[in-house]
Nucleic acid binder design. Structure first.
Lengths: 242, 242
DNA sequence: ACAGATGGTTAAGGACTTATGACAGCGGAC
DNA sequence: GTCCGCTGTCATAAGTCCTTAACCATCTGT
């Protein structure tokens, strides 16, 4: 049982993907598959609009058809790479062309990956994940979430309801442990073991003090206490009212 | 024209590529083409050795054959992803298999890209550049930017808010490393590994001194400190107020 | 209601981590 | 050879955080 239902990252925010494709048939196919994989998909069928959307509502990744009416895919790609705001958005190109020179041109223009039609939706998903793994580690698991608390372990930053939270090293480790096992109750002894270390000898009551500091940092004016005290058992992370 | 990214005569470092391929014929073909594009190619024909080499002489990218004697490519890939030192090395898989399920398995195991034989050497080069552009922009001679800091890796010039910044060699490499992974926290040990090199033995505290020198050069009168100290964890580049 | 047990809160000393300034060694430029 | 800039190390200063202990508050069983 255990963390099972709430593995790290499972509550992470959905990666937002913009699909630019004029063939409605294919667009639907892609949308359906990405939807099912837990992506937040939006779609448009025109190069001009793609540029606008990319700029004002920056997606995490763009799936771009090479053959578009009006502005071609290659032009969209070039434009995206030119502007600072969209420079780093990963792009996966979708195309009917199988010519090698086209593929190379696509990659050299700034695309991150390339797939030729007909393509396998599952492979598209796999490639999207491979690209996101590189560019947005935060989207793929370095992030711990519970209720309105978010911890980025690579940045060592913690927020509650979008407000930045300052923690000392021990409070950070303590919270991480709770976030890795949300809801579960830990005795002081267990906490000392897993947060402090097997071989460290400190008073059990020391845990209380750190719990207090963690609470103080987490529960600012008006916010509900998110750490539950279980009398004669220990402490747990718990967002429900108690 | 291409390798492009690596302007002739530029001072940029050659990206180091490890090719793991047991078919000597293909290995030679790949080596020849990568060589010509300005990569620093090394080669081995065995999975075991690939793992050793990757660890002790970390390449910037690995081109990995899926079918190897003894240890299979997929196993090598998995092992590389398991160890901290090799976790982030980009991998492009090379294979004769065209089965979709194999392709997907490759990407899900941690490969960054995938090419089926027979393949075009030029496309391989294009894909390598596309991956490197993401993972090690500095190697492709690109400009590194973060907040109001700009680094031109080909001219070795650094500016903050348009003011020229003077850096020693070590501070330059340190800043480059931070710029390649903005926001991320690195321990002193990690920094020694990636900025100084695996085999160099220096005191961890030495990092502090260079951080201080970097800060002094970067944060002149009144400017906010852009390097964040994360107590008992390390340092990070961070423009937000902290 | 009471005594004992359990948890909350606070303050202070001390342990630990980081910042800083100084210095000697090294190697290249001239 | 001398100058100069860079590097690694150390000693010491400056901060920050951890632990402890003492005292209150609250809960539980009788």
């Amino acid at each position: 049982m255990e963390a099972a239902t709430l593995t790290p990252g499972s509550t992470a925010i959905k990666p937002r993907i913009l699909v630019v494709e004029d063939d409605m048939h294919i667009a639907e196919l892609v949308r359906y598959n990405l939807d099912r994989e837990g992506f937040d998909v939006s779609h448009c069928d025109d190069g001009e609009e793609a540029l606008l959307r990319a700029e004002e509502d920056t997606p995490d990744l763009i799936v771009l058809d090479w053959m578009l009416p009006h502005v071609s895919g290659i032009e969209v790609c070039r434009q995206l790479r030119r502007r600072a705001g969209t420079l780093t958005i990963p792009i996966i190109v979708l195309t009917a062309r199988t010519e090698e020179s086209d593929r190379i041109r696509g990659l050299e223009t700034g695309a991150d990956d390339y797939m030729t039609k007909p393509f396998s939706p599952r492979e598209l998903v796999a490639r999207i994940n491979a690209v996101l793994r590189r560019t947005r580690p935060a989207l793929t698991g370095a992030m711990l979430n519970y209720a309105d608390i978010a911890m980025d372990t690579t940045t060592h930053k913690v927020t509650r309801a979008d407000r930045q939270v300052r923690l000392g090293p021990t409070e950070f480790r303590l919270l991480r442990h709770f976030l890795e096992h949300p809801g579960r109750v830990f005795s002081r002894e267990q906490l000392l073991d897993s947060v402090w270390g097997h071989d460290v000898y400190v008073e059990q009551r020391t845990v209380d003090v750190h719990i207090r500091r963690l609470r103080k940092a987490l529960n600012q004016k008006g916010e509900a206490d998110i750490i539950r005290t279980v009398r004669s058992a220990g402490y747990a992370l718990d967002a429900s009212v108690h």
